[in-house]
Nucleic acid binder design. Structure first.
Lengths: 213, 213
DNA sequence: GCATATAGGTACCGCTCGGTTACATCGTCA
DNA sequence: TGACGATGTAACCGAGCGGTACCTATATGC
């Protein structure tokens, strides 16, 4: 980053006009997430972005590369947001997990919920050599590690195993949420996670997350 | 290219010649499950089946209809197999669930595990009006009911909620299994389910599934 | 022996896909 | 003013898609 200067002029007090690559990224992100990667053609992406096809191929090597970029960005964002929620009250990891899960539970309870874009991409691209799949696997591995660390912070006897159990719950919400929408199995995820955590804590260490009473 | 010898004329001492429709069903089932529905073209399906495209369209209205047929068959089979395992020891629903989960856990621990075809299809077809998606939703609803009934048979206080919690675990195994393959989070599903069941049983009612010691 | 019904194959359709080319245009800054 | 970098325009490519009109082979009933 040498110059912070806008490469493109802001015409008379407007927001800086977005460059083609960024518009493409945004449009691809929406479409890929909403409809799936395979279901969306490059034509549709550039049309929605208000740009043209050569612009896409000037910034991205291929549709696969664009998909990988989409997953990379979304994954990093998700990981960062998770991190932020946990860090909001570092003394109370269990309570913060609960906060995160309550948000997830609310999102998954909507009829147009589409789950986790990373998981969805892995389902769409079973071939482990595919660039999109590679990114998806990487993101998920990091998330898995993060959950194990969280379980350790909670004082679990076997943090890796508690982390994995929680991960099953997360993944379960992603797919069952988009399968059932409102009123689906996702509605029990907060309680289920609580039960799982409880069962992994040494005796006397457990008992309720946030409520002191 | 010679005429290719008659594939179905061997009625003298052999298996009954399989009809084109059935060969197509088998090949579609393998390919759809392995690679995903969108990733597979009708050309590949008929080639692998050893038949030709018009044969496909004489038995199925469209690729979508074939996909729906594939999901219907796979779903019914899966439900029936689950039913059979549970029915093998009707007095011990908890132990039978455990049996089923141990099998699932073993399958999900392979590097080429591809999860649940029904779940995968729902991810590939987010549009609820799509014929394949409709079948997928139907199958999953029935499985959800079945789990609730199972939870009731175990004597859970809130069978619907325990059923849903177990469903989250199942779905979690499907996607995390194909994401991580061997050594993934699926390895804890039996224990996690056990903990969940335990937490839902009235006091004194619980304690271990199969092992009496 | 011959007609017929039917399962199957041959060869093709139009379309959309991901991706590319050559060139024109516009805005910005030196 | 002039040059440059970023973008748009328009046409195009080969491959593969889902789907179909039409012909051929075979088993069977009369």
């Amino acid at each position: 980053m040498t110059k912070g200067k806008p490469l493109r002029s802001r015409r008379a007090g407007g927001k800086p006009p977005k460059r083609a690559a960024e518009r493409i990224r945004e449009s691809a992100r929406d479409l890929f997430y909403r409809q799936g990667i395979r279901a969306v053609g490059v034509e549709e992406i550039v049309t929605r972005a208000g740009v043209t096809k050569p612009s896409l191929y000037r910034s991205f090597l291929s549709k696969d590369a664009l998909a990988a970029d989409y997953l990379r960005h979304m994954g990093e964002d998700g990981l960062a947001r998770f991190e932020a929620v946990i860090a909001a009250d570092p003394e109370n990891p269990r309570g913060q997990l609960r906060v995160w899960l309550m948000e997830l539970q609310a999102k998954a309870d909507k009829s147009d919920y589409r789950g986790c874009g990373t998981t969805n991409a892995a389902v769409e691209y079973p071939d482990r050599r595919h660039p999109a799949r590679k990114v998806a696997s990487d993101i998920k591995s990091r998330f898995r590690s993060r959950l194990a660390a969280l379980a350790a912070a909670m004082g679990a006897r076997e943090p890796d195993r508690l982390g994995d159990a929680l991960m099953l719950l997360f993944e379960g919400v992603y797919t069952s949420g988009q399968l059932f929408g409102a009123g689906g199995p996702a509605r029990v995820v907060v309680d289920a996670a609580d039960a799982l955590v409880e069962s992994h804590l040494p005796p006397g260490r457990g008992h309720r997350a946030t409520t002191p009473s």
